[in-house]
């Protein structure tokens, strides 16, 4: 059974069709990347899976269960999303404790105190951060809180939308290590959107290259080592990033 399966997915915003005919499968425990420029529709695919872009046709199923177009409680327990900007994705007037307890409250789960404490430990935050507000945290700490929030319901599938692009390189390394460790510890499946190919090389097993709303190629991460992409667009993207890779 695949963790995420997309069949012939079309997504529109109003009259504009932004994603067309996207199909791929992500195996359980796999880390899969969606790469491409802004406007290529990669984030939109994540949004559609998460239910934030409800105007789609085709098939989306997560862990074998097809997803409908409406908000779905059970779905939230299986699949969660981490957003790009930790400065924008946390409520400015809620403490870390409130942010982390809320999903438990919504789903009527008990033992909240212990769970919050445990999750803070898992993402490498000290207990003293528990009653702070987002403005009292650095960007890296905020992203840790956002990751903790996504993990509170113990989902098996995580949708990561450029989780480190708003962070410094040194902090990016910490967050990438954290994500990698969590995946190993909790057996998570990642679907990650990024435009940074070296990050794909570090985090992912396979990638889909998107351009103008279509998947032009699905390649193994090993293709980053030798540049063995078949599609001209993927090769151009590789070349544009190749200059920034430092080896």
């Amino acid at each position: 059974m695949s963790a995420i399966s997309l069949q012939d997915l079309d997504i529109s915003y109003g009259t504009a069709k932004v994603v067309e005919g996207v199909s791929f499968d992500v195996a359980e425990g796999e880390s899969f990347a969606l790469v491409g420029e802004s406007g290529s529709g990669k984030s939109t695919v994540l949004k559609a899976i998460a239910g934030l872009a409800p105007d789609w046709t085709g098939g989306i199923s997560v862990l074998g269960q097809p997803r409908g177009h409406r908000p779905d409680r059970g779905f939230a327990r299986r699949c969660q999303m981490v957003f790009q900007d930790p400065y924008g994705s946390l409520h400015p007037r809620k403490t870390v404790d409130t942010v982390l307890s809320e999903p438990l409250q919504v789903h009527g789960l008990g033992n909240r105190d212990a769970r919050v404490e445990e999750m803070l430990g898992a993402v490498g935050l000290d207990r003293r951060f528990r009653f702070r507000y987002p403005h009292q945290l650095s960007g890296g700490q905020r992203q840790r809180v956002a990751i903790a929030r996504a993990l509170m319901l113990e989902p098996k599938v995580m949708l990561l939308d450029e989780p480190t692009s708003a962070l410094d390189v040194s902090v990016q390394a910490e967050i990438l290590n954290l994500l990698k460790r969590l995946r190993a510890e909790q057996g998570l499946t990642y679907l990650m959107v990024t435009h940074n190919l070296p990050v794909v090389g570090f985090m992912c097993d396979r990638m889909a290259v998107m351009n103008r709303g279509r998947v032009v190629e699905i390649a193994p991460a090993a293709a980053l080592h030798d540049g063995s992409f078949s599609d001209p667009y993927s090769r151009a993207l590789y070349a544009a990033s190749g200059g920034t890779a430092h080896d």
């Binding site: 390189v169 040194s170 390394a173 070296p198 090389g201 570090f202 080592h225 430092h246």
Partner: peptide
């Protein structure tokens, strides 16, 4: 040196990235 090492590379083989 720490900053330089923390950047993921295109030919990445390190299991974890060195952190400052």
């Amino acid at each position: 040196q720490g900053l330089l090492a923390a950047v993921p590379r295109m030919h990445e083989t390190r299991p974890t990235l060195p952190v400052l």
